[in-house]
Design a protein around this nucleic acid. Sequence first.
DNA 1: GCCAACGTTGGC
DNA 2: GCCAACGTTGGC
Length: 163
Amino acid sequence: MHHNTSHKEIPMNYWLMKSEPDTFGINDLYNKPNQTEHWDGVRNYQARNMMRDDMKLGDRVFFYHSNCEMPGIVGIMEIVKEGYPDFSAFDPDDKHFDPKSDHEHPRWMMVDVKYVRTLSRTITLKELKHQEELAGLALVRRGNRLSIMPVSKGEWEFILSLE
DNA sequence: GCCAACGTTGGC
DNA sequence: GCCAACGTTGGC
């Protein structure tokens, strides 16, 4: 068997990230310079750990609008910078300031995301909840409040097939 | 605006 | 380490 490590494939990861469109929606990302923004303000350890440890360059992410009239998946982004300290935690004037985080020992992490595209329609939470194929998706599980969650390749492709 | 379902904090 | 109190998330 011939081995060629230079062709070793790194599997792409898929994610879903929530944001309130009144605060930062997909159009806000679209209008950013280079259509890129840092995903700051996450103050949940599980979500932080995923950004710190698991999100890799090139990973694809569903942009989810939460706490709004029509909650659902509205677009796709890409990870363009892997986990690094969330500097909004250092700023006393920032809404997400955390006195327990500093440059020496940053407690919170973030990634940079880049706009890829807007879906032709919103795939609503209501609709996602009705799909047997998505029963394992954290988003539709009872009481889920995670703002960042993994999506399997199968779930990713299935969701896009609904578009 | 209500409130269930969380996660975090801090007294003990 | 327990757990009550509190704050937040986010659908509805």
